[in-house]
Design a protein around this nucleic acid. Structure first.
Length: 422
RNA sequence: GGAGAGUUGGCAGAGUGGUCGAAUGCACUAGUCUUGAAAACUAGCGUGCCGCAAGGUACCGAGAGUUCGAAUCUCUCACUCUCCGCCA
């Protein structure tokens, strides 16, 4: 959620910034400001009333103690009017706060100044490209390769679960594990602490990182237990720090976690879902950081650099995009997408999304930093895929197929224990 | 799944209707003492909201209720622990 203090003091900037998401937030923001004012003035009056009630109550207590029954009874009758007013004010305050929170949590994060305006992925800004996207010798899509070399069994996955739940078999499975291990080792070297979080999360966690209340349709839901399957490790890992005040000296906090991710992906179709392009269950290694406001943007760049390092070591041509306002996620202030070139399909595939949420998630989950001078403020949260497996596998197979065999990148061979797939 | 016990400040742990935001100990911070450290002593030490401030108000797992007044009584829910059952 946006912070009220910011909305109060930077109303115009926030409205202008939200325009980059193609949202005219003026009416909403003004409603927030009005509700906030109502909330504050109501609380002032309520506090005065409560103060009087408290005083009266303790006076009555004294009178009873001194045995002055009649005076005590008289004082009691005075309290009833006050009580009615207090209850009324309390009702108004709660209702106002609840309205305020509902509206506030429905407003997306205000994009960073560097975010370009735009409507769709067409308007994303390409920051840089690495590698030669055109030099692949063959153009066989990965679904032909996985079938030819028996790496992934899509059909049996359909039988036991449904579309989008593939079965990795033999060297396909080993390649998958090798990549996971490689990604975690790299993050480990970069100072991230590995965590293995739960794969189901409760409502509070879903709200904390911003998947709830609006995106519950995207998550699988275990009705009996009121739990959701995680769409990304971001949710459990970031929520480890929910309702916490962390010492500035402990920042940055860096975690890496490998988890399967589950997404319903309702409404997807066509070439986007062919093969490994979009799945309901997929593996991902995620990096998460908690930072101070003044350092978070440098940290964002560092995280992008980390992900680029992975792609370079794998030898996959890629490009870095700065997402436009219209294509950015609800909670993000600035997002970089990394896309690898898929030689077999002749197109770019998103394999990582690295974002700075600034205080947006922190404010939802009450995650604060205690500064050296003792003052508390919202922390910044960041995360990024490092990396999402399926499309990496797709690009790896396609780009390294020489017509006879698939050549495993040298960095992976110690993990796979085989150099080629043929 | 069954039975029982519990949930209080960073931790431990008092508190069963009034002056309790909450004893005490530990931890932590600052100071005194000391060549330095330890010890000892002194002081400070939760969070949110409102307020320029003084200060006010709320929070003792969550929510509702009884009462002039609730950490304390009642109800509902959640969670934790112990024992039994089941089980990787």
């Amino acid at each position: 959620m946006l912070q009220l203090v910011n909305i109060r003091s930077n109303r115009d900037e926030i409205i202008a910034s939200l325009k980059k998401r193609n949202i005219d937030a003026e009416a909403l923001i003004d409603e927030v400001i009005a509700l906030d004012e109502k909330r504050r003035s109501t609380q002032q009056v309520l506090d005065q009333n409560l103060n009087e009630s408290k005083k009266l109550a303790s006076e009555i207590g004294m009178l009873f103690k001194q045995g002055k029954q009649e005076e005590a009874q008289a004082a009691k009758s005075k309290t009833s009017d006050l009580k009615v007013v207090t209850q009324e004010l309390d009702g108004v305050l709660k209702e106002t706060e609840s309205k305020l929170n509902t509206i506030l949590s429905s407003i997306p994060n205000a994009p960073h100044s560097s975010v370009p305006a735009g409507k769709s992925s067409e308007d994303n800004e390409t920051i840089r490209t690495w590698g030669d996207a055109s030099d692949a010798p063959h153009h066989t899509p990965h679904w032909d390769l996985t079938s030819k070399y028996k790496l992934i069994d899509f059909e049996t996955g359909v039988k036991i679960t449904g579309a989008g739940f593939p079965i990795y078999t033999g060297r396909g499975a080993k390649l998958q594990r090798a990549l996971i291990q490689f990604f975690i080792d790299e993050a480990d070297s970069a100072g991230y602490t590995e965590v293995i979080p739960p794969l189901l999360i409760n409502e509070a966690s879903g709200f904390g990182t911003g998947q709830l209340p609006d995106k519950d349709g995207q998550m699988y839901y275990a009705n009996e237990d009121n739990l959701f399957l995680i769409p990304t490790a971001e949710v459990p890992i970031t929520n480890m720090y929910r309702d916490m005040i962390v010492d500035e000296a402990d920042l940055p906090i860096k975690n890496v976690g490998y988890t399967p991710c589950f997404r319903r992906e309702a409404g997807s179709y066509g070439k986007d879902v062919r093969g490994l392009n979009r799945l309901h269950q997929f593996d991902k290694v995620e990096i998460v950081q908690l930072e101070t406001p003044e350092r978070s943007y440098q940290t964002l760049e560092n995280m992008v650099a980390h992900v680029e390092g992975l792609l370079r070591k794998l030898g996959l041509p890629y490009r870095v995009l700065r997402l436009c306002g219209g294509d950015m996620g609800f909670t993000s202030a600035l997002t970089y997408d990394l896309e690898v070139y898929s030689a077999g399909q002749g197109r770019w595939l998103e394999v990582s999304s690295v974002s700075n949420f600034e205080t947006y998630q922190a404010n939802r989950m009450k995650l604060r930093v205690k500064r050296k001078d003792g003052k508390k403020e919202m922390a910044h949260t960041l995360n990024g895929s490092a990396l999402a497996l399926p499309r990496i596998v797709a690009a790896l197979l396609e780009n390294n197929f020489d017509g006879e065999k698939i050549n495993i990148p040298a960095v992976l061979v110690p993990y796979t224990k085989f150099e080629t797939i043929s």
